[in-house]
């Protein structure tokens, strides 16, 4: 029961293009929050049926700044971008660290020919060697703050950062830098440019993430579990909860041993990692008795177990991709946020 006015509009910042854009728009749509944007060139949008939300499109780095300073209340960006600016003063916090897409790693990569350098500790020694020889050890990166912070923890101090934008992979062979610290997802680009990752060289595991302005989130969470923040976070949790799962319906019968077969099918599914198993009696269109088992099953398990299900007496197996799953016992981003911000939701 706050005396101040509720935050309206709630400003949600989204990357204006690329995979970070597509991923969140898809996710929100599945969650029932359809972003309506008049054209690709328009930098603001609304959400259908959600008049309090105002969507703005920006570059991922600007999103970090705007959320930190409270001009936007929620934002979708890369965890890498957020972490790079995390040391700067401000009030942003990570609400959901991994939205399930945009995964990549920030890694140290050295020239392939450096066969003496295999572990990040080699850099402690090597940078000191450079220093004694009166040479600067140069590192190209788009993430100077993260590199400084990480290398300091490792005891690596003697180097010069070459902050750069754009492709860094050629810097070592062009002599611009000795090594690079850059994002990679598969490592192919590094390999193609004759660079190699080293052990202990992963500085950050990144993915698309949801960040928020802490004081605004606190105000919004005070609106309770029917407030707009609770609803959108619950919906995102619900969609995220479906990832990799199939809703499975197994039907069998009519047989005299119906209930026995249903039990065996349920046991088998449980062994395959299924959850939320429920079984019951059913009647077909002619009124003959049968049984039905429903569950959530890891999607990749289905093709491996359908024949076993037939042997156990099933006559039909249907796998549906769930759109949203609410599970009473699943962790809740909203409740968790309330605890982190101090005070109940």
């Amino acid at each position: 029961m706050s005396v101040t006015h509720p935050i309206d509009p709630i400003r949600l910042a989204i990357p204006s293009k690329g995979h970070l854009y597509e991923g969140i728009v898809d996710l929100l749509k599945t969650a029932g929050y359809k972003v309506r944007r008049a054209s690709d060139r328009q930098y603001e949008a609304t959400i259908v049926g959600q008049p309090r939300f105002h969507v703005v499109f920006m570059r991922p780095t600007d999103i970090v700044t705007q959320v930190r300073e409270g001009r936007c209340h929620l934002g979708v960006t890369g965890l890498d971008v957020h972490a790079e600016h995390a040391a700067e003063p401000g009030d942003s916090i990570v609400v959901i660290p991994d939205l399930g897409y945009g995964g990549c790693r920030l890694v140290v990569a050295v020239p392939e020919s450096w066969i003496d350098v295999t572990h990040v500790m080699d850099l402690v020694d090597l940078t000191t060697e450079f220093k004694h020889a009166g040479k600067a050890f140069r590192i190209s990166t788009k993430y100077p703050a993260l590199v400084r912070q990480h290398f300091r923890k490792l005891g690596i101090y003697h180097y010069q950062l070459i902050p750069s934008d754009g492709a860094l992979e050629l810097h070592p062979s062009l002599g611009i830098a000795d090594i690079i610290v850059d994002l990679t997802s598969s490592g192919t680009t590094l390999k193609d440019n004759r660079l190699r990752e080293i052990a202990g060289g992963t500085i950050l595991e990144s993915a698309a993430c949801l960040i928020g302005h802490a004081p605004s989130l606190k105000a919004l969470s005070n609106e309770g579990e029917t407030g707009p923040l609770a609803l959108i976070l619950d919906a995102i949790d619900g969609v995220r909860g479906t990832e990799g799962w199939l809703h499975l319906e197994v039907v069998g019968g009519p047989t005299a041993t119906g209930s026995r077969a249903a039990e065996q099918v349920a046991d088998h599914l449980r062994d395959q990692g299924a959850t939320h198993i429920a079984r019951g009696e059913v009647w077909d269109d002619r009124g003959a008795p049968g049984w039905r088992v429903t569950s959530l099953l890891p999607a990749r398990r289905l093709t491996a177990c359908q024949r076993a299900l037939f042997h156990l007496g099933a006559s039909r197996v249907v796998g549906l991709r769930p759109q949203i799953v609410f599970d009473r016992d699943a962790p809740s981003t909203f409740d968790d946020l309330g605890r982190r911000l101090g005070g109940g939701g």
């Binding site: 020919s113 450096w114 003496d116 020694d125 090597l126 062979s173 000795d178």
Partner: peptide, 20 residues
Amino acid sequence: VPDVTGRRSGREIVHRIRRK
């Protein structure tokens, strides 16, 4: 390493392998 790339020479690399 038939073709040494980067700012260090083959000799420097070998030297360091020995030291390590």
